[in-house]
Simulated scan of single mutants.
Amino acid sequence: MSTAPDANKRLVWRLLAVVVVMGALSWVAVPFYSWFCQVTGFAGTTQVATQESDRVLDRTVRVRFDANVMPDMGWTFRPMQREMTVRLGETAMAYYEAVNVSDQTVTGSATYNVAPDDAGYYFEKIECFCFTEQTLAPGERIEMPLTFFVSPDMVDSRDAGHIRDITLSYTFFRQDAQKSARAEVDAAPATALN
């Protein structure tokens, strides 16, 4: 027959195991979700291509470009063209413009998505400013290229075959603000344990 101290020890170990498992699951959730979205195009996540498409179809799709910045960014950010019509499989290049209107050097990174969501799996980026951080000095202006194509495989898709209009949307976030927020979150559990 077990005693109360033995039962308490088992309960503590079980609770500790639950905490460890939950911590591990939360640690892998973000990379797993990113991988899942990248592979499936879920939530309008675009694909990354290493080369141009090997076939171009006569069917066209209109691509609209959207740009947003977080309020603390200190930048203006806009597409240099509002839309373009491209043939499926055709490599196209678009440009976005960013201007640092603040009085300090700002580093930012862009997140992106495609609407409708079903088009994300077929929207292939070859080169994009969103793959790296961008740093602008006060008053600096840059034009940032985007090279992409819409996969001709989209015509065979039951879910995306009907799509004629795609919106590509970017939002720039201040990178140092993200790092500060991450540092605060990372530091919180350590201080709570002390």
Rank of each mutant, 00 (worst) to 15 (best):
Phe172Thr: 05
Thr135Glu: 04
Thr91Arg: 13
Cys37Gln: 15
Glu184Tyr: 04
Tyr121Cys: 00
Ala188Arg: 09
Glu140His: 09
Thr85Asp: 06
Ala98Pro: 09
Gly41Lys: 01
Glu140Met: 10
Phe77Glu: 00
Gln38Lys: 15
Val18Ala: 13
Val28Pro: 00
Val20Ser: 05
Tyr121Phe: 14
Asn194Arg: 14
Pro189Thr: 06
Arg62Lys: 15
Cys128Thr: 08
Phe77Cys: 05
Thr46Met: 12
Tyr112Asn: 10
Ala98Asn: 07
Leu15Pro: 00
Arg182Thr: 12
Pro31Val: 04
Glu184Gly: 05
Tyr95Val: 05
Arg158Asn: 03
Thr167Pro: 01
Cys128Lys: 01
Trp13Ala: 10
Thr40His: 07
Ala183Thr: 12
Arg55Ala: 10
Asp156His: 11
Asn68Pro: 00
Val99Gln: 13
Ala137Phe: 08
Val114His: 00
Thr132Val: 10
Gly120Met: 02
Tyr121Asp: 02
Asn100Thr: 10
Glu52Leu: 04
Val56Gln: 13
Thr171Phe: 09
Tyr121Gly: 10
Trp27Leu: 15
Met70Gln: 15
Arg78Val: 10
Val86Ile: 12
Val150Tyr: 00
Thr45Met: 12
Leu146Phe: 11
Met70Asp: 14
Ile166His: 06
Leu88Trp: 07
Val99Tyr: 04
Gly23Lys: 00
Arg164Ile: 02
Ala160Arg: 08
Ala192Gln: 10
Ala98Ile: 12
Val155Gly: 03
Leu168Ala: 12
Gln47Tyr: 07
Val39Phe: 12
Glu52Ile: 04
Tyr96Cys: 06
Gln175Phe: 14
Glu133Ala: 13
Arg87Lys: 15
Leu88His: 05
Asp66Trp: 09
Ile166Phe: 03
Ser180Thr: 08
Glu90Phe: 05
Gly41Gln: 03
Ile163Thr: 06
Leu15Gly: 14
Glu184Trp: 07
Arg10Ala: 05
Met144Val: 09
Val20Pro: 05
Ala188Gln: 06
Thr76Gln: 13
Ala160Phe: 05
Asp72Ser: 14
Ala181Gly: 08
Ala94Trp: 03
Gln47Thr: 11
Val63Arg: 01
Ile163Glu: 10
Met22Pro: 01
Val12Cys: 00
Glu97Thr: 10
Gln38Trp: 15
Trp13Arg: 11
Ser2Glu: 12
Leu146Met: 13
Val56Phe: 07
Tyr170Arg: 02
Ala192Lys: 09
Ala110Asn: 07
Trp35Tyr: 15
Gln81Pro: 02
Trp27Met: 13
Gln47Gly: 05
Thr132Glu: 11
Ala24Asn: 04
Ser169Leu: 11
Ile166Asp: 01
Asp118Pro: 01
Tyr112Trp: 15
Ala49Asp: 02
Lys125Asn: 06
Ser109Gln: 11
Asp66Ser: 15
Pro116Ser: 08
Ala190Ser: 11
Asp153Phe: 01
Glu143Gly: 03
Ala190Met: 13
Cys130Asp: 07
Val30Tyr: 14
Ala177Asp: 10
Ala160Asp: 01
Pro138Trp: 08
Leu16Gly: 12
Gln81Ser: 13
Ala187Asn: 09
Gln51Asn: 13
Gly89Arg: 06
